[in-house]
C-alpha cells in the first residue's frame, strides 16, 4: 500500500469537487485541492472561511456534504470502518487547543496511541513517550504534569508530541501558533521544521500567522468566499495582483512579516 506513494508527484491528499454546507450556510463549494508528498502546505483565509472545516474533512473527522476526498491513496467515503481506522493510524492531528486528555498526565497522553495500537511493554511505551517529549522540546519530568498545569506553549508541544506518537506519514496542524507569544511561536515554527526534516511527514497546516507562512510553508492556498482564491508559494502570492490576495497579505502585518524574512 506504500508503493503508490513512492512517486513524489503523487498526491497524499486529493480533494475534488468538495462542498460543505451546515444547514443553509455554505462553507465551501466545488473545491479542488491536492497535497503533494513531502510538502508543507498551509491553508489560510479569514475567520469563517472554512479553513478548519477543510482540515477536518481531510483528517477524516467530518464527512463532506458532497465531493470526494482521498487520503494516503484511499478514497475515504468508500472505506469500511476497519479501513478508516487503518488510514487514521497513519495520520496525526494537532488540535487548536491541544485537546489533551485532562485525566491523563502528559506522558500518558503521548503514550495513549501507542498503548492503543501496539502491544509493547509499558516501560517501552513510557520511554518512547519520553523520547517524543524530548523531540518537541519538553523534558521527561514535564511528562508527569497534567494538561491543566501546562502553559499554552507547553500544551501545544505536548499535543504535537502526541500527534507524532505513531510517526504519522501525514500531519495536520490546526492553528499551531495561535495563542503563543511571538518567541514561543517562532520556536514552534522551528520545531515543526525540525520534525519535518527528521521524520519527513507531509504536513498540512491551517494558520493565519503570516510569519509562520513565510517561515514554514512550501505552498500556500488562500480560501475565501467558499472557494479557493489563490495558491502558490509565499513569494508568488506576495507578488500577486489579485485584490483578494493583496488584501490578505499586504496588510501591515503581512508586510512586516515579509520584511523580516
Amino acid at each position: 500500500m506504500h508503493t503508490a506513494l513512492n512517486d513524489s508527484t503523487q498526491a497524499v491528499v486529493e480533494v475534488s469537487d468538495l462542498s460543505m454546507r451546515f444547514g443553509s450556510k455554505v462553507i465551501h463549494e466545488h473545491l479542488d485541492l491536492s497535497v503533494r508528498q513531502g510538502e508543507i502546505l498551509a491553508i489560510v483565509g479569514g475567520s469563517g472561511s472554512g479553513k478548519t472545516t477543510l482540515l477536518r474533512e481531510m483528517a477524516l473527522l467530518q464527512p463532506p456534504t458532497s465531493g470526494t476526498v482521498s487520503v494516503l491513496g484511499e478514497e475515504i467515503s468508500g472505506l469500511t470502518e476497519q479501513q478508516t481506522l487503518q488510514v487514521r493510524r497513519r495520520i496525526g492531528v494537532l488540535f487548536q487547543n491541544g485537546a489533551l486528555f485532562g485525566g491523563l498526565n502528559v506522558m500518558q497522553n503521548v503514550g495513549a496511541p501507542l498503548r492503543e495500537h501496539t502491544r509493547l511493554s509499558n516501560t517501552l511505551i513510557d520511554e518512547i513517550a519520553c523520547v517524543k517529549l524530548s523531540l518537541v522540546g519538553l523534558t521527561a519530568a514535564d511528562g508527569l504534569l497534567y494538561p491543566n498545569q501546562l502553559s499554552g506553549g507547553m500544551r501545544k508541544r505536548a499535543a504535537l508530541a502526541r500527534a507524532i506518537a505513531l510517526d504519522p506519514e501525514l500531519l495536520f496542524l490546526d492553528e499551531p501558533t495561535s495563542g503563543l507569544d511571538p518567541l514561543s511561536a517562532d520556536a514552534f515554527d522551528e520545531l515543526v521544521l525540525n520534525l519535518k526534516a527528521a521524520l519527513d511527514p507531509t504536513v498540512v497546516l491551517v494558520s493565519h500567522d503570516v510569519d509562520t507562512l513565510w517561515r514554514v510553508a512550501d505552498r500556500v492556498v488562500l480560501l475565501g468566499e467558499g472557494r479557493l482564491l489563490a495558491e502558490g508559494s509565499m513569494q508568488a502570492l506576495s507578488r500577486s495582483s489579485d485584490p483578494a490576495v493583496v488584501r490578505f497579505f499586504q496588510g501591515p502585518r503581512g508586510r512586516a512579516a515579509q520584511a523580516s524574512v
Binding site: T123, D126, C130, V131, A140, G143, L144
Partner: peptide, 20 residues
C-alpha cells in the same frame, strides 16, 4: 542513521522514565 541520531540526540536514558 538520521533517525538514530535524532533519538540519540534526545539524551534519553533507558529506564529513566520519571515516576510520579
Amino acid at each position: 542513521a538520521g533517525l538514530l541520531q535524532l533519538v540519540a540526540g534526545t539524551r534519553m536514558e533507558a529506564g529513566a522514565v520519571p515516576r510520579p
